[in-house]
């Protein structure tokens, strides 16, 4: 699980140098779990998901030196998503089949939608980690209660505060998470900044 939400802006630039091993390790640490989670989400076994992760990194090492971020030509997440979906197809060709049934029949648009969902989840997980590092413990406890589906009234009773305080906290946490996500995505998209 990536915890370093504050993507170093020059990471994308650095990995264009295939010999910058430290940058590649950081890149793999950041996006490897996302690729694995995507693989697991579409039903790949661990071993296949690992192979996809490896194939993506190998393909990127070949293609990233020529990659220039241009919002007009799509965002980095789309670029990475295509690389991942391509790797799944490549692996299928290589093995003759994958050790899972669903993927063989999955339409490309299904894979794209799954990738987008997983990408959102990836950023949510990273934002949650940042929030847990910085937020007030009581607010975090309230947030956990919200995540667990407790109603505003129940949470107010649990924490002996008024429902208005709970609503206010919820709004603040939402704003904070939105800001964290915005920062993460900017860092991801401004790799050549």
């Amino acid at each position: 699980m990536p915890t370093d939400a504050s993507t170093h802006p020059s990471l994308l630039r650095r990995v264009r140098d295939a010999h910058d091993h430290a940058a590649w390790r950081a890149f793999d640490r950041r996006y490897g779990p996302l690729i694995l989670a995507f693989g697991r989400r579409i039903g790949l076994q661990v071993a296949d998901a690992e192979d996809v992760r490896q194939a993506v990194m190998m393909n990127l090492a070949r293609t990233l030196p020529g990659f220039r971020y241009d919002p007009a030509h799509g965002r980095f997440r789309t670029y990475l998503g295509r690389a991942v979906v391509h790797a799944v197809a490549e692996l299928r060709r290589r093995h003759g089949r994958l050790r899972t049934l669903d993927v063989d029949h999955a339409a490309p648009e299904t894979l794209d939608a799954s990738w987008q969902d997983e990408w959102v989840r990836h950023h949510c997980r990273a934002a949650l980690h940042t929030l847990r590092d910085e937020a007030d413990p009581v607010h975090l406890a309230m947030f956990d209660a919200m995540l667990n589906g407790r109603s505003t009234a129940t949470i107010a009773a649990m924490f002996e505060v008024s429902p208005a305080v709970v609503r206010k906290t919820r709004q603040r946490l939402r704003d904070r998470l939105r800001a964290i996500i915005a920062r993460q995505i900017r860092a991801e998209e401004t790799g050549d900044a």
Binding site: V120, R121, C124, R125, A127, L128, M146, L147, G149, R174, L177, R178
Partner: peptide
């Protein structure tokens, strides 16, 4: 909806 997204992520 945002809370559902974070719940799924957690």
């Amino acid at each position: 909806a945002w809370l559902r997204r974070f719940r799924a992520a957690a």
